[in-house]
């Protein structure tokens, strides 16, 4: 399949330009072996249009910078091989649901920071901080693994873009937020339990706003089991035997 010509249809818009409006622009490129959308976009920028905007940092699928909608699926552009699209047509759109910086570049960073501030997405120690001179507190190896499992999220935003609920309701914390909370409720070093997150988690912005569309789980480039994380929280909050419904 190498050597074929691929057609890119790319969303263009510069919101800072007073009279620029959104449009789709078509580019053509000869495919090289092992070409990723990352390689292709850089080549396009260098050879065809120096104003094309997009974000790549690690180009290895670990930093979460390069998420965009590729042929209808939000995913990481750096690890998407062009050869996987048999038609040779690739349509690139910026992630919906985020502030547009320009073309394919969106401000996921700002979104994630404010989400973190809103959810208090950091460890709130259960007790006083232990001296770092002393031997560390123990933790069950399995607990550590479970925490890491949800901590693998790279805040790329694919789950938010794939979620129709998040699009319809700005305040919905989305799978990324739910997963973040699940991560801290799993962590015994954290003093908070699900109840402490109830004000956001227990409402329509939280787990009860989720309609189990599972776009999040289908899109997550890290393959996080978001469905299980969310259903865990839902059970925990709705069916907790300590509470009478």
């Amino acid at each position: 399949m190498t050597g074929r010509t691929i057609t890119f249809e790319i969303f263009r818009c510069d919101p800072q330009h007073p009279n620029d409006s959104a449009r789709m622009q078509t580019f053509e490129l000869t495919e090289a072996p092992g070409m990723t959308v990352f390689i292709a976009l850089n080549q396009l920028r260098k050879e065809q249009d120096r104003s094309l905007q997009f974000d790549f940092v690690c180009r290895a699928g670990v930093c979460g910078s390069c998420a965009m909608v590729i042929n209808g699926m939000p995913t990481l552009a750096c690890k998407t091989l062009t050869s996987q699209f048999k038609s040779g047509k690739i349509k690139l759109m910026p992630l919906p649901g985020f502030e547009l910086i320009g073309d394919l570049s969106v401000n996921t960073g700002k979104f994630m920071r404010s989400l973190s501030e809103r959810l208090q997405g950091w460890l709130v120690p259960a007790g006083a901080e232990r001296s770092f001179d002393a031997v560390e507190a123990t933790m069950e190896p399995q607990t550590a693994e479970m925490i890491y499992e949800s901590e693998r999220c790279i805040e790329c935003g694919c789950c938010v873009s794939a979620c129709a609920t998040a699009q319809m309701r700005d305040t919905f914390i989305g799978a990324v937020g739910l997963n973040k909370i699940a991560r801290f409720t799993l962590d015994e070093r954290d003093g908070r339990g699900p109840d402490d997150f109830y004000h956001v988690l227990g409402g329509d912005d939280g787990v009860f706003g989720c309609m189990t569309l599972l776009g999040c789980a289908d899109a997550c480039p890290k393959g996080l089991n978001l469905q299980m994380q969310i259903s865990y929280l839902r059970r925990k909050l709705a069916l907790n035997p300590d509470r009478i419904i």
Binding site: W122, L123, P125, E129, R130, F132, D133, A134, V135, E136, A137, T138, M139, E140, P141, T143, A144, E145, I147, Y148, E151, D187, R189, D190
Partner: peptide
């Protein structure tokens, strides 16, 4: 270095643990 690892454990790093 040991202090750095231990402090980061207090700050939330889920270091892999010995079984």
């Amino acid at each position: 270095a040991p202090k750095a690892v231990r402090q980061s454990a207090e700050w939330g790093v889920p270091w892999s643990r010995i079984k």
